[in-house]
Design a protein around this nucleic acid. Structure first.
Lengths: 347, 347
DNA sequence: GGCCACTATGACAACGTTGTCCCCCAGCGG
DNA sequence: CCGCTGGGGGACAACGTTGTCATAGTGGCC
C-alpha cells in the first residue's frame, strides 16, 4: 500500500502499518491467543514459546492496541478526565499535579483540558472525555448547568466537582472554606484597628467570588464595622481596572485603609499597582502564592492547598470507582490565615 | 444483571450498561448503519428518520464509543501525548497550556504525564501513550536513551523533543538558547565590574544544566575573568544546600560578588537564603518568574517563553502530521536578558 | 491397558463502530 | 410495460483484542 522506506532508526519515514498480534503470531508460529497470553502475562504458556513470542514482538516493534483492548474488555479504559479553568494558572497546575499523582498510583492516565471559564467549552471537554469512556471525571465547573452529565452519571461514570459546586445536579463536590476564609481575613484586619476594609473580587457569577464576598460581608458585620457598598469592587479585573479601583478607594471621603483581595491574580494586580507607593493599605490576599514571603512587606494570605484539593477530589473519585455508592458528599477543606506582614499593619 | 435504581438525576447509582448504536437503532426502528449516518452527519438520511434517531439518542443518553470508532477507522485517535518533567512547575504548566491551545485548534485532546526526571517513568509514559495510539508525542526527555521510541517513530508516530534533545535518536527538537543565555548573563555582570561571578546549576547530567554551565564558562573566558572551579556549584540543590553554598562563596579568599542561577528553582532558593542579608551579591537568574519585578531588588533574569516553546514544538508536530517528512529539525529559541535591578549592582 | 488429570495451545465469537456493497421502490421516459 | 435512475436504507465484514471453550498430547495410577 505505501512504500517502505530504506529503514534505519531515523525520523521522517513513511507511515508503516503497525504490527498486530496477528503479525506477531505468524512470525512466532503460534496462534494469536498465545500472543495475547504472553502480552498479558497469563499463565499456561511454555517458557520456550513465550520466548519466541517475545522475540517476535521485539522484532516487529509490536505494541498492543489499547483501543481494541478496552473495546473488547468493556471495563476500564484506565483514564481520568480533568476539566479545569486553566492549566497555566499555578493553582490549577498544582491541582493537576496532585490528580496525576494519585491517578498514577491507581494505574490511570489523566486527560485534561482548560475551559477558560467558558461553560460551552467545559461541556464540550467533559462530553468528549465521556466519549473516550474515561473511568471518571473531575470538573472545575465553569457554568451552572450540568444536567448534560446526567446520562453519563447514570451510565456509571463518577463525577466529582472541585473548587466550585455543580449547577443542577447532585454530585460529589470538594470545596475550600471560602466564606470562613474571608471572614477570617476581615476579622484579622479589624483586630489591627482597620474599620475601612475594601474587597476586590471576581465577577459574582463565579461561585468562589460570590462566596468570598459573602464571607467579607459577614466578617464586616461581625466586626461591627458595617458593610459599605462603596468599599466593594467585583467583576473581571485586570491590571488597569485594579489601579483605577485603588484610586477610587483612596479618594473616598473615608478612604480604605485595608484591602481583602479575592484571589491570587487580583492580589498580584494590587501589588503591582502599589509598587513604589509609600502609604500602603494593609492587604490580605485569598490564595497563597510563591514568593509571597519574599516581597516587602511579605504578603499575608488566606492559604489553601491546591494539592490537598486535587487529592481530596481524586480520592473521592476513586472511592466511587471502588464501589462506594453512598449519597453524594460535599467536602469543605479548611483554609488558614498566614500572617506575613502586609495584613498586620495597624490602621 | 444489575438492578436499576429508582431513576432521577442523582449520583450514587448502580452501573447501567451504556447504550450502543444498536440500542438506538432498535428504539428508533432503523438499522444500526442509519444511526451511524446520523451520528456522523452523513448525507442520505431522510429528515424524519434522522429526527427519530436523534430522539432515541437523547432518550437513551447515547454517546458514541470512541474506542470502537478509532479501532474501526484505524486513523487518528485525536490525541497528543505530552511527557514533561512536572506539570506543577509553572514553566511546564505554561508549556502545557500552549500545547493544549494548539491541539485544540487542530481538534486534538492532550494526555499528559510527569516524569519527575525519572527516565524509566518517561519511557513508561511515552510507551503507554503509544499504546493508546496517540497521533503524536511531545517529550521533555528525562534520560538519554530514546531508542525505545524507534519502533513507534517507524510506525509513523511523530515525536518532538522539547527543552532538551533526545539521547540516541535523530528527531525534531525545540530548545532554548541555553549557552547564549548564560554567556549574556556573565557578560552583563562583568560589564558592571564583577570579576568573581559564581554559577549555581542543576546536576550536569541534565542537558540544560550542562549547557548553561558551558555558557557560563564561555562567558567567563570571553569577559577575561577566567573560569574558577571554586565558583561553581552543580548538583541537585535544595534550600539548605544553596544556603551552604552561598556561605562558602562568601568565605572564599576572594568572595563571589555576583551569582548566575541555573534555573528558576535555584533562583528562588537563593532569594530565600539572601532574605534579610544586607550585603547582597548581584544576581541574574535563568528563567523568568512571576513577581520577579516586585521583589526588592527586582530580579534580573534570562527570560524565555514557555508558551513559545510549547507552541513551536506543537507546530512542528502538526507539520509532521500534515505530511512534512523533511529531515528532522532542531529549533533553538532565543532568550533575552531582562534587567530589573539585581543584576545591575556594581561590584 | 484404560482412564484421568493436567498442561499447552488453538478456534471462534464478540466488543461497538464504520466502510462497502447491495437492495427496494418511486418516478420517469421510451 | 419495461428499463433506468437515484434516494433512502440495510446486511455484513472488518478493525485488534480477549473470554470461552475445545482439543491434542503427556504422564501417572489402578
Amino acid at each position: 500500500m505505501t512504500t517502505l522506506s530504506p529503514s534505519g532508526p531515523v525520523a521522517g519515514q513513511r507511515k508503516v502499518r503497525r504490527a498486530t498480534m496477528n503479525d506477531v503470531a505468524r512470525l512466532a508460529g503460534v496462534s494469536i491467543k498465545t500472543v495475547s497470553r504472553v502480552v498479558n502475562d497469563e499463565p499456561g504458556v511454555h517458557p520456550s514459546t513465550a520466548e519466541r513470542v517475545l522475540a517476535a514482538i521485539d522484532q516487529l516493534g509490536f505494541r498492543r492496541n489499547l483501543s481494541a483492548r478496552n473495546l473488547r474488555r468493556g471495563s476500564s479504559t484506565g483514564t481520568i478526565g480533568l476539566v479545569l479553568e486553566d492549566v497555566g494558572n499555578p493553582f490549577y497546575s498544582g491541582v493537576t499535579r496532585a490528580v496525576e499523582e494519585i491517578a498514577r498510583l491507581r494505574g490511570r492516565q489523566v486527560i485534561s483540558g482548560s475551559s477558560d471559564e467558558d461553560p460551552g467549552r467545559e461541556r464540550e471537554l467533559a462530553l468528549e472525555f465521556c466519549s473516550r469512556r474515561v473511568d471518571g471525571l473531575l470538573i472545575v465547573p465553569a457554568g451552572l448547568q450540568h444536567s448534560y452529565l446526567v446520562p453519563e452519571m447514570r451510565a456509571g461514570t463518577p463525577v466529582v466537582f472541585l473548587d466550585r459546586p455543580a449547577g443542577d445536579v447532585v454530585a460529589d463536590t470538594v470545596l475550600v472554606d471560602n466564606i470562613g476564609g474571608t471572614v477570617e481575613a476581615v476579622t484579622h484586619l479589624a483586630a489591627h484597628g482597620h474599620r475601612r476594609i475594601a474587597f476586590l473580587g471576581d465577577a459574582p457569577d463565579i461561585f468562589t467570588a460570590n462566596e468570598r464576598l459573602r464571607g467579607y460581608r459577614e466578617g464586616c458585620v461581625r466586626a461591627g464595622i458595617g458593610y459599605h457598598e462603596e468599599l466593594v469592587a467585583m467583576g473581571p479585573h485586570d491590571e488597569s481596572s485594579v489601579a483605577t479601583t485603588l484610586q477610587r478607594l483612596q479618594n473616598l471621603r473615608e478612604p480604605a485603609t485595608a484591602i481583602v483581595a479575592g484571589n491570587n491574580r487580583i492580589t498580584v494586580h494590587i501589588l503591582r499597582s502599589l509598587a513604589g507607593v509609600a502609604e500602603r493599605p494593609a492587604l490580605v490576599g485569598f490564595d497563597d502564592f510563591e514568593l509571597a514571603d519574599l516581597l516587602s512587606p511579605p504578603v499575608t494570605v488566606i492559604a489553601h492547598d491546591a494539592s490537598a484539593l486535587g487529592k481530596a477530589a481524586t480520592d473521592l473519585l476513586f472511592a466511587r470507582l471502588d464501589g462506594d455508592n453512598s449519597p453524594p458528599r460535599r467536602v469543605v477543606l479548611p483554609v488558614r490565615l498566614v500572617p506575613r506582614g502586609s495584613g498586620e499593619v495597624h490602621a
